[in-house]
Design a protein around this nucleic acid. Structure first.
Length: 267
DNA sequence: ATAATATGGTGAT
DNA sequence: TCACCCTATTATC
């Protein structure tokens, strides 16, 4: 579930329900009882996402959440019902509850600490302060492949393994291309594509990178097996040419690309 | 029943 | 490069 689009949508929806509300915080699972007690009965003042991090600003402290690979925040309109499963944190009002399970990080920090965590991140394509300039400055300063740079949250905050594969396919860039060898035109186009695709992800609530003109159904009803170009499509035909999608490993994660649409860099 | 998998990240080797 | 953390769901014996 969680790349940057998930967290931004979550911040928006959670904020709609809980900002300006006095929130009952608890840890049904028990592993976060002490932390939940610190913010219990406080008012939520702001819910914001920065890359894949979620910050919930209460009167006096900040809840910092990172979903990791398997974390999920689910909404229920039956806050009086006992939650099922391993719920690390529940945030509830009389009418709605949000249940967090499986987070990589769930902690209470000071506002200063929250700012420090955010300051370590690269530009977030879903925020106003995420600029092409900052992205370009990061890329020209690394000799690593662009496929590794895109997963580095200090280079760009919010891109994960699905968007990495999809964005490089859309731009026709081979994942092993050195980041500092990309032309400024390539970098600008990649950044624009990153912003537009992540924004679409927020809007749709899932990752759909396919060009709408190629789909038989409306974008928001695209079937799971036709939403993407490269991710998890090893051995299947490229959607833009006659070649076959290949799978490699890059930065310790699986990577997919089309050998024809994304030719190897000449240098 | 047990294993493998997952859109992530860290810390040790 | 690997092991490991968190949890739920699906696949395999």
């Amino acid at each position: 579930m969680p790349e940057g689009h998930t967290l931004h949508r979550l911040a928006r929806d959670l904020g709609t329900d809980l900002v300006d509300e006095v929130v009952h915080a608890s840890s049904p699972q028990g592993r976060f009882s002490a932390g939940a007690a610190l913010v219990d009965r406080q008012q939520l003042t702001k819910a914001e996402a920065r890359g894949k991090h979620l910050f919930l600003w209460f009167d006096h402290e900040v809840a910092h959440v990172h979903l990791g690979l398997i974390g999920v925040f689910r909404r229920t309109t039956e806050p009086d019902t006992e939650p099922r499963g391993q719920i690390r944190l529940r945030l509830a009002t009389d009418t709605v509850a949000w249940d967090l399970s499986g987070p990589n990080v769930c902690e209470i920090v000071t506002p200063e600490q929250a700012s420090e965590i955010a300051a370590r991140l690269g530009p977030d394509p879903l925020r106003r302060d995420g600029t092409l300039k900052r992205f370009e400055n990061k890329l020209v300063a690394t000799s690593r492949p662009i496929g590794a740079a895109l997963l580095d949250q200090t280079v760009v905050a919010g891109v994960g393994n699905v968007y990495r594969a999809e964005l490089l396919f859309l731009e026709g860039i081979h994942p092993e291309t050195r980041a500092d060898q990309l032309s400024s035109e390539n970098v600008a186009a990649l950044w624009a594509r990153t912003r537009s695709q992540l924004r679409r992800g927020v809007r749709l609530g899932r990752i759909v990178t396919r060009n709408p003109a190629e789909l038989k159904t409306p974008l928001d009803r695209a079937a799971d097996d036709e939403r993407l170009y490269a991710y998890k499509r090893a051995g299947e035909p490229c959607r833009h040419c006659d070649d076959t999608i290949e799978r490699t490993m890059l930065a310790n994660r699986k990577m997919w690309h089309c050998p024809t649409c994304q030719p190897e860099p000449t240098a």
